[in-house]
Every structure is written in structure tokens, then in C-alpha cells.
């Protein structure tokens, strides 16, 4: 196991380096965008005097690299800094947004991952049957539509026509868990439909790929039932690719849901990032980007660990 621990530490170290690179790129790119926060905030009312007063107040009159290193220094002391626009502590409001995003992503994953695995297994079991084709066709159809279209269709049928779920996800911090769950179901369903096909088809392909191996044939010959062959013999060796695709989709559920957030008016991190980029609020953009990058790095790390642990050849490399 010591080699595993070493791999994890190594990957975490590389992850930190990646985060640093990400923050540097973000700072550079935001600096390249036309206009700055003062002009974005003041809009049409940006006269030279108001812009100058505003820049001075938030310290934007100093060079970019000095501001960047000040921010970096803050990060190492655990201080995400303040929003340039609202002067609020970033950790305070990013926290609520992040928990909203994780809640939505978690709920969608709770629907999507078991469903994708189950349908994938069944599709592999009854491959090339009518069932297999229907499952493939429907999930591919749902992934082919743009997210907002899937969202509107769900709203139209489940909210406007049937009146079961609310059309917007008006969640706030002091809401009871049940209420929050109820109001988050439609966006979670939308995301489920969007990510389902990818995981399902990977599960199906990985298992079918193994089904032609000699040891599976052996299992069949000794009389094991088909479902048991797939779950106990094929699946353990298929975990590697499946988990990688799941990790990719989970990361997507956290970082790629801006459109769904907008359609359902869900107060998540994506909307915050878009607002902050539009306003050139660099510290907030940085905070969001770092969180997104960290999510990607950690989920990928997790996927790699699972594939290593599930595969003895990787666990004990010669």
C-alpha cells in the first residue's frame, strides 16, 4: 500500500502546481479582457472622475502583478480575499453557492450513476436486443439535445402542464431539507438526462469488451448464470474505464451547469462565475476557478485510485 500512498501524495503535489498555474492563467486572461471592474460596474455612468475614484478605492491603480502576489499571499494564509465589487468576504458567499452546487450535483449523481450502471449492465447482458437499442436510443437522444431544451421540455410537462414540480428552483439557506430536495428535482433530472448516456455506454462497452475474454468463457462453461458472470466476473475488471467516465461526468455536474442554473434560476457557483467574469471581479473569478480546478483534480485522483485498487496489476507493479 505504501506505493499507493506515494502516488496519492505525488498527485496532490502536482495538483497544487496545477492550481497555481490555473490562477496565473486566470489572472492573465482577465487582465486581457477589455475594460475593468470599474467600467463594468459603472456601465454607462463611467465618467473619467468616477472611474478614477473607484479604481483608487479598490487599489486597481496598482500594477497587476503586485495585486496578483498579494492575492496569492492571502491564499496561503487561508484568506480568499474580498470581492472587489461588493467588498464582501469571498469565503462567506462562495460557501453558500458551492454548497448549492454540490447539492444539485450530488442529487443528479445520485439519480444518474446507479441508473447508468444498472442500465449499462442490463444493456450489456441483453446486448443487441430491443431493450439494448431502446435504452441506447433514448439516452443518446437526451444527450443530443441542448441542456436548456431538455430543461424547458421538463418544465413544460412536469411543471406547467402537470403542476407537480415548481418551474424555478427558488432555494435559500434556511429552507428545510425536504423543500430544498423538492425544488431541486427538476434541474437534477435535467442533468441526469444530460450525463446518463455517456456513463451508460461506457459501462456497456467496457463489459462487452471483456465478455470475449477466455476467463469469461470459462465462467460460462462452468454454468454460471449470465447476470452473475457480468456482475462478479466482468465488472471488477471493467471498473477502471467506468470510474474514469463517472469522474469526468461528476466534475461536469459541478462545473458545467451554468445553463441549467440560469433556466431554473438556481443560485449555484456557475452563475456566480459568469457574473464575476462579466464584472471583471478578479478575486471572485479566481476563487471559483480554483474550486472548479480542485474538483477536477480531486475527482480524477479518486478515479485513478479506484482503478489502481480494483486492478491488482496496477496495485503491485513489477
Amino acid at each position: 500500500m505504501s506505493s499507493l500512498a506515494r502516488i496519492i501524495l505525488q498527485r496532490l503535489g502536482l495538483g497544487l502546481l496545477t492550481l497555481f498555474a490555473v490562477s496565473l492563467i486566470i489572472a492573465f486572461v482577465v487582465e486581457l479582457l477589455p475594460g475593468d471592474i470599474t467600467q463594468a460596474m459603472l456601465g454607462q455612468s463611467a465618467t473619467p472622475e468616477t472611474v478614477a475614484a473607484f479604481r483608487k478605492e479598490i487599489g486597481l491603480d496598482r500594477p497587476a502583478h503586485i495585486r496578483y502576489f498579494e492575492w496569492l499571499g492571502g491564499i496561503f494564509t487561508g484568506d480568499l480575499g474580498q470581492s472587489l465589487a461588493s467588498k464582501r468576504d469571498i469565503s462567506e458567499f462562495v460557501g453558500t453557492r458551492l454548497s448549492n452546487t454540490l447539492f444539485l450535483g450530488g442529487l443528479a449523481a445520485a439519480f444518474a450513476v446507479p441508473l447508468a450502471l444498472l442500465l449499462g449492465l442490463l444493456a450489456a447482458l441483453y446486448r443487441n436486443s430491443i431493450f439494448d437499442r431502446i435504452v441506447n436510443l433514448t439516452t443518446l437522444t437526451s444527450i443530443s439535445f441542448p441542456e436548456f431544451f431538455v430543461a424547458y421540455i421538463l418544465i413544460l410537462f412536469l411543471s406547467v402542464k402537470a403542476g407537480i414540480f415548481p418551474g424555478i428552483s427558488n432555494v435559500s439557506t434556511n429552507l428545510a431539507f425536504g423543500d430544498q430536495l423538492f425544488r431541486t428535482i427538476l434541474p437534477a433530472l435535467t442533468l441526469t438526462l444530460v450525463v446518463l448516456a455517456h456513463m451508460l455506454r461506457m459501462t456497456r462497452a467496457a463489459i462487452i469488451n471483456l465478455l470475449s475474454s477466455p476467463y469469461i468463457e470459462m465462467a460460462h462453461l462452468k454454468g454460471t448464470r449470465a447476470f452473475r458472470v457480468i456482475v462478479y466476473h466482468a465488472l471488477p475488471n471493467a471498473w477502471g474505464p467506468i470510474v474514469n467516465v463517472i469522474a469526468l461526468n461528476l466534475a461536469y455536474l459541478v462545473v458545467g451547469v451554468v445553463v441549467v442554473e440560469v433556466v431554473f434560476v438556481y443560485p449555484g457557483l456557475g452563475q456566480l462565475l459568469v457574473d464575476s467574469v462579466a464584472k471583471r471581479d478578479l478575486p471572485v473569478v479566481q476563487a471559483c476557478a480554483i474550486i472548479f480546478a480542485a474538483v477536477y483534480i480531486l475527482l480524477n485522483l479518486l478515479a485513478d485510485i479506484v482503478s489502481i485498487v480494483s486492478n491488482p496489476r496496477l496495485l503491485h507493479p513489477r
Binding site: Y152, I155, S159, V160, G163, P166, G167, I168, N170, V262, V263, F264, V265
Partner: peptide, 15 residues
């Protein structure tokens, strides 16, 4: 409520 998307606003009013 801030609702940027006009379809979302209309849906919320209708429902």
C-alpha cells in the same frame, strides 16, 4: 428574485 432568463420568468409566473 433575479431571473435573467425570460422563459424562466414566464414559466414561474404561469406556474
Amino acid at each position: 428574485l433575479q431571473i435573467a432568463d425570460s422563459s424562466a420568468r414566464e414559466n414561474a409566473l404561469r406556474t
